[in-house]
Each structure stands twice: as structure tokens, then as C-alpha cells.
Design a binder for these strands. Structure first.
Lengths: 197, 197
DNA sequence: ACATTGCCATAACGGCTGTTACGTAAATGG
DNA sequence: CCATTTACGTAACAGCCGTTATGGCAATGT
């Protein structure tokens, strides 16, 4: 544990990692300042030193998680339909880290739905993700890999499908191992590709 | 407020309705015995009189909600593909009551994912729902309304799609009004029907 | 009419929560 | 080498939580 000065922001990121750990194991309801402190091997005094309030701590941790998720190395195996597939594969809980992220994400829904501000924030993020997906769908259509049709509808449907698959996988990982998730996604994409415009 | 004796079970159902109300508005995190009591215009003494513990109260309310959801009047506009569509429409938050139910449902996920017992219970319920859906898919295939292919896969995909659509609709009801939800579902079913086996 | 029982309010309990105040030791700057 | 700042630990606070104990009032059985 560093006792040196000056690495303020770095320490805040370490704290965030502890928040993620607690959320992934105990859920949002079990997220306590004392639990986070214990995860760090410290006390609540450390937390209050770096964050004015719990809300600020959680907000920072969730923002940082999203930032890391967006900035992580992503699949890029091709253009068109392959890039649509990549974007969707990047969401699924195919690895332990992705599972934790999705776990945290789902756990935060309860609080978000009760808070209009957070709810609007989520709606905005989903809309953004949908737009990015739509661009890839358009590209796939231009390559002739997907039949014509409203790309926004196709993107919305694909997003909903993956979102639901995430939830199913979290609740029943035995029934939805990675291969099965990929299989279901590929079937979905195959149906998109073979549908008559 | 009835002060007569003997309607013990009926009173427990009234309490459950208050639990639903609180969960739909404040979420699982805001579900407090005092909040439920206030919703009833009573005190916590009433609650402890009818339920030994909070866990028992919540379990009863959620079980009753599921029972009511299964027993409610359902769509039955036909057989085969139409019955698949009906089953999926019955899940979507197309009415205020269905929205509340889904809201409660999603809110309970945080606690469920942290509790292996509850998690297994959810996995079992989802598997059951999937099996029922699979039966309808098979019927639709036998009628020639759906191309051949593993009915379990088709059912899983449809379930995931609807589940994701539920979440999206809850977070962004403005972007997913009932017509849009139905539209997206019908598009999904149309793609299923037109896919080459 | 009376005793009993069901129904519920009131009040208090210990425990856990986020937050605050304070103390202190180490790192830093001059 | 000293003054200052940073980085925490410690301890306590009020507030809310679920739970329990107690008491009274009204409905019920006799």
C-alpha cells in the first residue's frame, strides 16, 4: 500500500477496483463503505479522504468502469457483418472479466430505475450504443451482407437480443456457456442475413 | 381498513399489494417495512403480525406476483406462430400493470444474483418458461409457419430478445412505446418465419 | 356478561449505515 | 532541521433498519 504523496488519481482508481470487486460479489445492495474499505485492507477514513460522499464514489467507479470497457482492446476481425458480430461479442459475458462487468451493470439497474437522473443517463448510453451499432449495420448492408431494411430496427433488435442473453447467462451460466452464447448470436445474425428484404 | 377477524390470508394479499407498490416506485433498495406499512396506512406492527420476517414477506409477495402473472387473462388469438407471439406479448410491458410487474422483476435481480438460492430459483423459472415457449415453436413448425431447426434454440433466442426488450423499454419508455415493442417483436418473428431452414 | 382471542399501535432495542471530527505519522518543501 | 501538507486510522455521531416486547381495543365464543 503506497504511502507516498501525489498519486491521488491513481489511488482513486485503486479504490474503484475495490468497489467493482464488492459489487461483483455482493451486488449493489451489499455495497458498503466498510466492505470496500475491507477489500482494500483499509478503513472508511481512506474512502472519505478520496471521495466526499458514497454517491460520488459509486458514480466515479461506474464511470471508470464504462470508460475502461470502451477503451479495452476490442475485437476487429473485419468490416460489415463481421464488425456487427464483433461489437455484440464484446458485450457478452464470455470471459470472467466481462462477466463481472455485466454483473455490476445489471446490479446497478435497481438503483438506476428508481433515480430519474441515472435512468436518463442509462437511456442515453444505450441510445448511443445503438447508434454505433446502426452504423455497422448500414456498412454491412452496403456490402450486401445484410438485406435492406431499417438499420435502426435491426440494431435495436440485435441490442435487445444481446442484452437479454447477458441476463440469461448471468442467472444460468451452466445453461449458457460461452460457446452457446456465440452460437445463439451467430444464429441470430444468420437469420438477419438470410431474411428477405 | 377491516378490523374483522378470520380473513388472514386475504390480509396477507393486501400487504403484498403494498409491497408491489413500494417496489415498483422505490425499487428493491427502497423496500422498507416502514415504507410498506405507510403504503397501507398502518405501522410495522401489522406487518410483523402477518409475517415473521421481512424475507418471508418479500418471498410471499414475489411468489404471489408470479402466481397472479401466470393466472391472469392471457392472449389467445390462435395456434402455432400466433401462440408464440401471444406468449411473448404477454411478457412485454405494454400496459401499466405489466410495466410495474417487469419493474419489480428487474429490481429483484440484484438481490437474486447475490443469493445462490434465489439465483437457482430464477434459472429454473426461466428454463420452465423456455420449455413452454419451445412447445409452441414446435407446434408452429408442424403447421409449417416456422422453418425446421432446433426449437430450443429458437425459443432461447426469442426469450432473450423479449427479455432485452423489456429492459430497454423500462429504461427508455419514450423510445419504446407499446407500438414499437410490438413492431420489433413482429419483425423478429417475421425473420424467424422467412429464414431458410 | 364475561373471558378469550385476534388485531394492531406504540415504543424500544441493538445493529449497521454514511458521515464527521480529530489525531497522528510520514512525506514533502524550504 | 523545521513547517507544512498529505494520507490515512480511530472513534464517535445521528439516522434508519429489522426485530421484539408490551399493551389495549375490538371482535368473537360461551
Amino acid at each position: 500500500m503506497p504511502r507516498t504523496k501525489g498519486d491521488h488519481e491513481a489511488r482513486r482508481r485503486e479504490v474503484s477496483a475495490a468497489v467493482w470487486q464488492v459489487m461483483a460479489t455482493r451486488g449493489f445492495a451489499g455495497l458498503t463503505l466498510r466492505a470496500v474499505a475491507a477489500e482494500l485492507g483499509a478503513t472508511t477514513g481512506l474512502l472519505t479522504h478520496y471521495f466526499p460522499t458514497k454517491r460520488a464514489l459509486v458514480a466515479y467507479a461506474l464511470d471508470l468502469l464504462e470508460e475502461r470497457t470502451l477503451a479495452r482492446p476490442r475485437r476487429t476481425t473485419g468490416a460489415g457483418l463481421a464488425s456487427v458480430r464483433d461489437a455484440l461479442l464484446d458485450i457478452l459475458p464470455l470471459t470472467p472479466e466481462a462477466t463481472d462487468s455485466n454483473r455490476i451493470w445489471v446490479s446497478s439497474w435497481d438503483a438506476s430505475l428508481s433515480d430519474p437522473e441515472l435512468s436518463a443517463d442509462y437511456a442515453r448510453k444505450y441510445a448511443q450504443s445503438r447508434d454505433r451499432l446502426r452504423e455497422r449495420v448500414i456498412a454491412a448492408q452496403e456490402l450486401g451482407e445484410l438485406p435492406p431494411g431499417d438499420p435502426a430496427e435491426i440494431a435495436s433488435a440485435a441490442q435487445a437480443f444481446v442484452l437479454g442473453l447477458v441476463v440469461q447467462s448471468l442467472f444460468d451460466p451452466a445453461a449458457y456457456p460461452p460457446e452457446r452464447q456465440v452460437q445463439l448470436l451467430d444464429d441470430h445474425l444468420a437469420r438477419l442475413a438470410s431474411a428477405r428484404g
